[in-house]
């Protein structure tokens, strides 16, 4: 994975295959405290303790199309490589929480990448699911909630190509504003 946004795109696929209806993505950047946290929560099927124990083993996967499962191990490796940490908690029929902490200024910390693009790929491909995305940069935050967007759209499909482009632009603009605020 070239950047952290691609990890988010990858890990959320797990939530979707677990049948989650609500997915919460939280990114918290704090340059002063030298940390960057990514939190992905879902209300999918969850995992039993014995499965949970094995998910960061690259030779474990629940799928049948291939024999390896690298999504979580790679995410974990990249978090730990930047002096951070990685935890995953899950409860059957309740859902799963993946938490990755990164050292903000660490040289091996991957760039965040195109988060608005990733959010809109997820929203556009899964119009029937609800996504709640919160991004905090040095204390200032921006929230994008598909429930609110759907209300504003008033019947226009959220996966309409033009809508996706507008929403992506909107998230990008707001993130830029958060970035500028820190100066």
């Amino acid at each position: 994975m070239k950047d952290l946004s691609l990890h988010i795109l990858d890990i959320v696929q797990n939530s979707l295959s677990a049948g989650a209806q609500n997915i919460i993505i939280t990114i918290d950047e704090d340059a002063v405290a030298d940390r960057l946290n990514i939190l992905i929560q879902d209300d999918g099927a969850g995992m039993a303790p014995d499965v949970l124990e094995r998910v960061t083993d690259p030779y474990y996967t629940s799928r049948t199309t291939r024999k390896v499962g690298l999504g979580l191990p790679l995410f974990r490796q990249n978090a730990e490589m930047s002096g951070g940490s990685f935890t995953i908690d899950s409860q059957p029929s309740k859902g799963t929480v993946v938490k990755a902490n990164f050292g903000y200024h660490h040289i091996d910390r991957q760039p965040l990448g195109d988060v608005p693009g990733v959010i809109m790929i997820l929203v556009g491909s899964n119009p029937e699911k609800e996504f709640y995305y919160k991004h905090r940069i040095n204390g200032k935050e921006y929230v994008f909630d598909t429930r609110e967007a759907r209300e504003a759209l008033d019947g226009i499909p959220i996966n309409e190509p033009s809508v996706i482009r507008y929403l992506k632009e909107m998230i990008r603009e707001n993130l830029q504003e958060l970035q500028e605020n820190k100066k």
Binding site: A152, L153, D154, I156, S162, V163, R165, L167, E169, M170
Partner: peptide, 22 residues
Amino acid sequence: MTKIKSLADLKKMKSDLQSKIA
């Protein structure tokens, strides 16, 4: 493309979007 900064801005684009879909 018109700049969209909030969902309120998106609401203003509604008629454009609707005619495109129609």
